[in-house]
C-alpha cells in the first residue's frame, strides 16, 4: 500500500525542450502533497512523469531518478504499464469511458489485469470502490447505465472509484476539481481526506485555498520566463508555505502579488 516516492535531479523534456529542470523531492506516504504554481510552470508535467504518463506523448522523455520504495520507476527493465498499475491517476476533466456502464467503468482497471473474477467478487469490489469514492448511494440503482449520464462531480468520483479499484500505491490527481462546482469540489476534498489513510496522494491544483485545506506538504513550481524550464522553487509543510515561506517568489505567488 501507500509508498514513498523519492525524486532526484529530474529533468523532463518534450523533444529538445527542457520543460522541467532539476526537481528533488520526497513525497511522503499516507499524506497529501499539493503542487501549486502558475500555468505552464511544469507541475502537471512533473505529475505525469511520476507514473510515466508523460512519455505517452511522442518525443517526451526524462533524465534523473524517480524511486518508489527502492524501485527505480525509470529503470531499464521497468515496464511503464506496470508503473501505471501501481500509480493511479485522476485527470482534470472527468473521463469515464462513455461506452461502458458505471459498473464496467469501476472494474475497467481490474479487467486489464485479466484475472478471472467471480461475479460476487466483482460485485463486492464495485460496491467497495464506489463507497470508497462516496458515490455508492447515488448510483447503486443504476450501475448498468452509462457513466457519461452522471453529473460532472459524480463522474469525477466515478473516475476516483475506478482508480482506487485496482488498489494502487499512489494516487495522482491533476487538477481534479477545476471543472467542478464548489459543492462537488467539497465532496472530492472530503474524499481525499479519507483516501489519504490508504494512499499516497499527489494533487496538482490552481486553487491555493484547496492546497491549504487538504495537503500536508506543498511544492511551489515556477519558471523565470516563457521558454525557460520550470523549477521546484520551494517544497515545505503546507502550513509553512502559506504562513512563512522560505522563498520570496513563493510568498509573492500565494499572496497574489505575482507578475
Amino acid at each position: 500500500m501507500a509508498k514513498r516516492i523519492e525524486v532526484s535531479d529530474l529533468n523532463i523534456y518534450y523533444g529538445n525542450f527542457l520543460a522541467v529542470e532539476g526537481v528533488n523531492v520526497s513525497i511522503e506516504p499516507r499524506s497529501i502533497t499539493a503542487l501549486i504554481g502558475p500555468s505552464g510552470c511544469g507541475k502537471s508535467t512533473f505529475l505525469r512523469s511520476l507514473n510515466r504518463m508523460h512519455e505517452v506523448l511522442p518525443g517526451a522523455r526524462v533524465e534523473g531518478k524517480v524511486v518508489m520504495d527502492g524501485q527505480d520507476l525509470y529503470g531499464s527493465d521497468v515496464d511503464p504499464v506496470d508503473v501505471r498499475r501501481q500509480i493511479g491517476m485522476v485527470f482534470q476533466r472527468p473521463n469515464p469511458f462513455p461506452t461502458m456502464s458505471i459498473y464496467d467503468n469501476v472494474i475497467a482497471g481490474n479487467r486489464l489485469n485479466s484475472k478471472r473474477m467471480k461475479k460476487s467478487e466483482t460485485d463486492e469490489l464495485v460496491e467497495r470502490s464506489l463507497r470508497g469514492a462516496n458515490l455508492w448511494n447515488e448510483v447503486k440503482d443504476r450501475l448498468d447505465r452509462p457513466g457519461s449520464g452522471l453529473s460532472g462531480g459524480q463522474q469525477q468520483r466515478l473516475c476516483i472509484a475506478r482508480a482506487i479499484a485496482v488498489e494502487p500505491d499512489v494516487l495522482l490527481m491533476d487538477e481534479p476539481c477545476s471543472a467542478l462546482d464548489p459543492i462537488s469540489t467539497l465532496a472530492i476534498e472530503d474524499l481525499m481526506a479519507e483516501l489519504k489513510e490508504r494512499f499516497t496522494i499527489v494533487i496538482v491544483t490552481h486553487n491555493m485555498q484547496q492546497a491549504a485545506r487538504v495537503s500536508e506538504q506543498t511544492g511551489f513550481f515556477n519558471l523565470n520566463g516563457v521558454g525557460q524550464p520550470g523549477r521546484l522553487i520551494e517544497f515545505n509543510p503546507t502550513e509553512k508555505i502559506f504562513s512563512n515561506p522560505d522563498q520570496k517568489a513563493t510568498e509573492d505567488y500565494i499572496s497574489g502579488r505575482f507578475g
Binding site: 507514473n51 504518463m53 505517452v56 504499464v81 506496470d82 501505471r84 498499475r85 493511479g88 491517476m89 485527470f91 476533466r93 473521463n95 469515464p96 469511458f97 462513455p98 475497467a108 482497471g109 486489464l112 489485469n113 473516475c159 475506478r162 482508480a163 485496482v166
Partner: peptide, 11 residues
Amino acid sequence: LHREAALALGA
C-alpha cells in the same frame, strides 16, 4: 481524454 484514462489504468 479516454485514451489517457485507459493508459493511466495500466493498459
